[in-house]
Design a protein around this nucleic acid. Structure first.
Lengths: 213, 213
DNA sequence: GCAAAAGTGTTTCAATTACACCCATGT
DNA sequence: ACATGGGTGTAATTGAAACACTTTTGC
């Protein structure tokens, strides 16, 4: 009795959008409604079976683009889940997580079976996808503190306040603007463009840029 | 033309043994000589195809025990490699890494086709296993600085000098004994047993224990 | 001028580093 | 006694946090 093991690639995509009640920037993610058993009608992570000719990350990009219209700038492997009991049939999922910039986010499409949810409020997902989302959130929050991935949200040009806003939204805390600024500018890859952002009802903030090595 | 995707689980196992020339504690790992094409005769990571009834980590444990006799205390998923060009046939490898304690290491068997090598000196492995070993080394070295995994080498009971020796061997540096001691004891999970280690030609060091939460 | 956020300066406190020095054992 | 690593003390340096204060814009 040779049982076939299915191999799928799924992606947790994060974007920052205003919270529906508080209005403050918050993490959202897109989910796809299942149109077949198991878990018919439940929400699940976008993904699909790995094609023989596709790299793992190419598979993640393709299934994301097909369902949500997204082509995120940052894509990174999260973990592979292969428990025996995560689905009636044996399926191993290689899960990626993606960060979506504001401009790219605007291009996202909400299809018939695609909808965005506040990341910390998703409930009763298909398979073990709740655990996967929780794990992705933990990894994102941890990684923000020791790497430059905040710029995957801001893009290459940004003000210090925008960068701080990303940290505050993702890590769910508030940061001292003065100290954050110093800490951010201690990164030698962050350099001033000389230009300033207009249209604010206060002093125009300087625009910085992330120098790629 | 439906091409089958093979799914394998492999493991990079690390143990500390004296370096063949310098004698200083160094990372070693076990490799298996391939007895079929592709890469016949080359050294490769222990592993095997995922069985339909096995969890991913169970698969790692089984293939490790079968080939090397090891049953490591620490086993952790590293990454999944699925590039289309990593083998003539399409194979996706879910790779784990393991840490082997000294007492467990003594139980290791060097079979006909199993041999241990200095981790930083392995060359010309089968498939993309050189890149995998490098990645595992980087992850191990990074993780040692922000977690408690050093104890996966020492076991639950240890002297501060033994713990320091692990750090020095893995991270390839030398640490101030006084400062390392303070820093280690700042961890509230490390508590004195009250016992001391005898047989040394100097002041007997205190034995500490890692309190599991 | 006033509000509001950008940006600078300064003081305090905690953590890291460097290194001098004492302690307990085997030989 | 003395060599050796275990273990303690302490001053100097660095970095994080707290917060007062100045700057520049729109209205």
């Amino acid at each position: 009795m040779e049982q076939r093991i299915e191999l799928a690639v799924s992606t947790v995509s994060f974007a920052l959008r205003p919270h529906p009640t508080s209005g403050r920037p918050t993490l959202w993610l897109p989910l796809v409604k299942r149109i077949r058993e198991p878990y018919l009608g439940r929400w699940a992570l976008p993904g699909g079976p790995l094609q023989p000719h596709e790299d793992l990350d190419a598979s993640a990009r393709h299934s994301l683009a097909r369902t949500t219209g997204l082509e995120p700038a940052h894509l990174e492997q999260l973990y592979s889940f292969g428990g025996i009991d995560r689905s009636p049939d044996r399926v191993v999922s290689i899960v990626y997580w993606a960060l979506v910039r504001a401009d790219e986010d605007a291009r996202a499409i909400d299809g018939e079976n695609v909808e965005w949810f506040v990341a910390d409020e998703v409930r009763a997902l298909a398979f073990d996808h709740n655990a996967i989302v929780d794990y992705a959130l933990r990894r994102l929050r941890a990684k923000l503190t020791y790497s430059d991935i905040a710029h995957a949200f801001t893009g290459d040009e940004f003000t210090i306040a925008q960068l701080r806003e990303v940290h505050e939204a993702v890590r769910q805390l508030s940061l001292d603007p003065a100290n954050f600024r110093r800490q951010a500018l201690a990164n030698p890859r962050i350099v001033a463009t000389g230009r300033h952002l207009g249209g604010t009802s206060h002093r125009p903030p300087a625009i910085y840029r992330l120098e790629r090595p």
